[in-house]
Computed example of a mutant assay.
Amino acid sequence: MDLANSIQIIAILIECAVVVIAVLIATRNNRAYGWLIAITFALFALFDGIRIFFPYGFPRLYSLVLFVACASMLYAVWLMYNETRKSD
Rank of each mutant, 00 (worst) to 15 (best):
S63W: 02
Y75Q: 04
M80P: 01
L13N: 12
P59Y: 01
F58W: 14
F58E: 01
I7S: 00
F54A: 10
C70D: 11
I9V: 08
G34L: 13
V20P: 07
S6P: 02
F58L: 15
Y33A: 06
Y56D: 09
M73Y: 02
L46C: 10
F44H: 11
R28D: 10
V18K: 06
R31S: 07
D48W: 05
A22I: 14
R51L: 05
D88V: 00
V77N: 01
L79I: 13
F67R: 08
I50M: 12
F41N: 05
F67L: 14
A71E: 03
A71R: 11
R31C: 03
V23P: 03
W78D: 13
R31D: 02
S6H: 04
A45V: 02
V20K: 06
L3A: 12
F41Y: 06
I25S: 00
F44R: 11
T84H: 14
N29Y: 09
V68Y: 12
I9H: 07
L13C: 07
C16N: 07
L43M: 13
D48H: 04
K86T: 08
C16E: 05
A42G: 11
I14K: 00
P55G: 06
F54H: 12
I37S: 03
P55D: 07
S72W: 01
F58C: 08
A11R: 15
N5H: 08
I39V: 03
G34H: 01
L61K: 12
L74G: 15
V77R: 09
A4T: 09
Y33H: 13
T40E: 07
E83H: 10
I10V: 13
L66A: 09
M73R: 00
L43N: 03
Y33T: 09
L43T: 01
F54Y: 15
T40P: 03
D88S: 14
T40Q: 11
N29V: 10
F47S: 03
A17M: 07
A11L: 06
Y33S: 07
A71W: 09
I37E: 09
A32F: 08
A22T: 05
C70Q: 15
G34W: 00
I50Q: 14
G34E: 00
V18I: 15
D48N: 11
G57L: 10
F47V: 06
T27W: 09
I52G: 05
V20D: 08
T84W: 12
S6T: 10
F41V: 10
M80D: 00
L46Y: 04
S72F: 00
